[in-house]
Nucleic acid binder design. Structure first.
Length: 479
RNA sequence: GGCGCUGUAGCCAAGCGGUAAGGCAGAGGACUGCAAAUCCUUUAUGCUCCGGUUCAAAUCCGGACAGCGCCUCCA
């Protein structure tokens, strides 16, 4: 079965057909690095991380490019406020971006190009647009002439005339049309500037993505992603630039994620109702936040509050418990002799079925919510097989349990939250805990419930949870 | 004003014409010294409302109501 993708260009789901067999070339708009990223920024980062991981999982060779906008009005303003060099400011927040993304389990892109390192490519593209008769220069500024580009508006589904009637844009007198946008801006005093055929200046906002995507992925590539608020004008303009310069279709599939909302209102920097990702990550582990972001389809709005993250934490715990239970059962069985039952066949049937459901869900426009439902089904089935009283087994059962753990690992390649991260402490504290657990076991044997419960309560207070499982007591760290 | 999205149980959320997945919370039961974890059972004659098409609609069409987004920097 092929992957189906909701393509903003045609407002419908379409079969994914790569430009080159077996390969996926995708570009996602990255952050403007003038601040720490907020939760809303995290959504596309995770959504497209999952998409890219999924393509790799089903055998595609994926090239993933995500840019950093490191020259921009906001960066310059902010740097001026702080009295530092814009370059240093951008570097600081790029480093912070990677810290945040790492905590969310996001894989690095194959290339993270920066605007400041691609001035030649950008200038070349602006020149190409001018040479094709779609750009014009006035006093060091270069504009794209939208009226000259047939098909302007095809992504956002608007016509120039409709937009102008209700537009709230200030008309710049020197532009030929109010909708014309800047490809190159003449330098103002005190701003970073680069040499160009039109004098010192810097790129407009949109041209960077056109220049860098075609440089790394080719003139025509498969997937371009970003937030839904980028559809217009950013992505519309990208199409105009890329196709206006290269004279061929630039992107086959446009994918846009929905917004994170607070009380049903869009979370955004301009509204001021945003939460910094790192602040949330200080309250909830990365995998919990990642799971929360994947629990809703990427195109739907996702409302945020702490309660939802708490529910996500509990849901995730359920998956992790199933994994641990299997792990412990396996360890137990490896130490004792036993005979195989029908467990191996059942376990293998379950993984086969789950793998199919998981893929079907993901193939249908990356339906992570449905895909996770199949994982929960898997957990329930595995738990019920493994947790029966007196469950034992021989070589086949042991192999099947190993297979289940491997399957969790397989799913983890895509979701990256299925397998619990190792949370054991250092050797010394593990040894001490084992001694304490042994003391408690003695107390319980002597029916000294007071001591046993005291130990359990005190450990709970420092984040160690004791469970007296049928196979014996075990401990784990909370969350 | 133009374009577009959304409305499913207490909460979150799948579903895209064939008779309501999954998670959280709740109830009952098994297991347990008590818990925890786990399992079993249970929780929407109904999917904002009103019409229509169809043998069949949460799903398609029309209308109403409510909420939201883009059209301006924004993921």
């Amino acid at each position: 079965m092929t992957v189906r993708i909701y393509n903003t260009l045609h407002n419908r789901k379409e079969d994914f057909i790569p430009t080159e067999d077996g390969k996926v070339k995708m570009y996602v708009c990255g952050p403007t690095t003038y601040n720490y990223i907020h939760l809303g920024n995290a959504r596309p980062i995770v959504a497209f991380d999952v998409i890219r991981r999924y393509f790799a999982y089903i055998g595609y060779d994926v090239t993933y490019v995500q840019n950093f906008t490191d020259v921009d009005d906001k960066i310059i303003n902010r740097a001026n406020e702080e009295g530092i060099d814009p370059k240093d400011l951008a570097e600081k927040y790029i480093a912070a971006y990677f810290e945040d993304a790492d905590r969310l389990g996001v894989k690095r892109a194959d290339v993270h190009p920066r605007v400041t390192e691609h001035m030649d490519d950008i200038i070349k593209m602006v020149q190409g647009i001018i040479d094709n008769g779609l750009g014009y220069e006035i006093d060091g500024d270069v504009y794209f002439e939208v009226r000259k580009f047939k098909g302007y508006g095809k992504l956002s589904g608007r016509s120039l005339d409709e937009m102008q009637s209700g537009a709230r844009i200030a008309v710049d007198e020197q532009k030929r049309d109010p909708m014309d946008f800047a490809l190159w801006k003449a330098a103002k005093p005190g701003e970073p500037a680069w040499e160009s055929p039109w004098g010192m200046g810097r790129p407009g906002w949109h041209i960077e993505c056109s220049a860098m995507s075609s440089k790394y992925l080719g003139k025509t590539f498969d997937i371009h992603g970003g937030g839904a608020d980028l559809i217009f004008p950013h992505h519309e303009n990208e199409i105009a630039q890329s196709e206006g310069c290269n004279c061929c279709k630039s992107v086959n599939y446009w994918i846009h994620n929905g917004f994170i909302t607070i009380n049903s209102e869009k979370m955004s920097k301009s509204l001021g109702n945003f939460f910094l990702l790192r602040d949330i990550l200080d309250k909830f582990p990365g995998p919990v936040v990642r799971f929360y972001l994947m629990s809703t389809h990427y195109r739907s709005p996702l409302d945020f509050d702490d309660k939802k993250l708490e529910a996500s934490a509990k849901s995730l715990e359920r998956i992790w418990n199933a994994y641990r239970l299997t792990e412990e059962k396996l360890a137990l069985l490896e130490k004792q002799e036993g005979a195989d039952s029908d467990a191996p066949e059942k376990l293998s049937a379950i993984t086969t079925e789950t793998r199919k459901k998981f893929k079907d869900a993901m193939n249908d426009d990356f339906n992570t919510s449905l895909a996770l439902a199949s994982v929960f089904d898997l957990c329930r089935d595995v738990n019920s097989i493994v947790n029966v009283q007196g469950f034992s087994g021989g070589a086949d059962t042991i192999a099947a349990l190993k297979g289940v753990l491997a399957f969790f690992g397989e799913l983890n390649e895509v979701m990256n939250v299925i397998v619990p991260q190792e949370e054991k402490g250092d050797d010394l504290s593990n040894e001490l805990l084992n001694i304490i657990m042994a003391m408690r076991t003695k107390a319980r044997a002597a029916k000294d419930w007071g001591t046993a419960d005291y130990i359990r309560d005190e450990l709970k207070a420092i984040g160690i949870v004791i469970e007296d499982a049928p196979d014996g007591p075990r401990w784990k760290k909370e969350k």
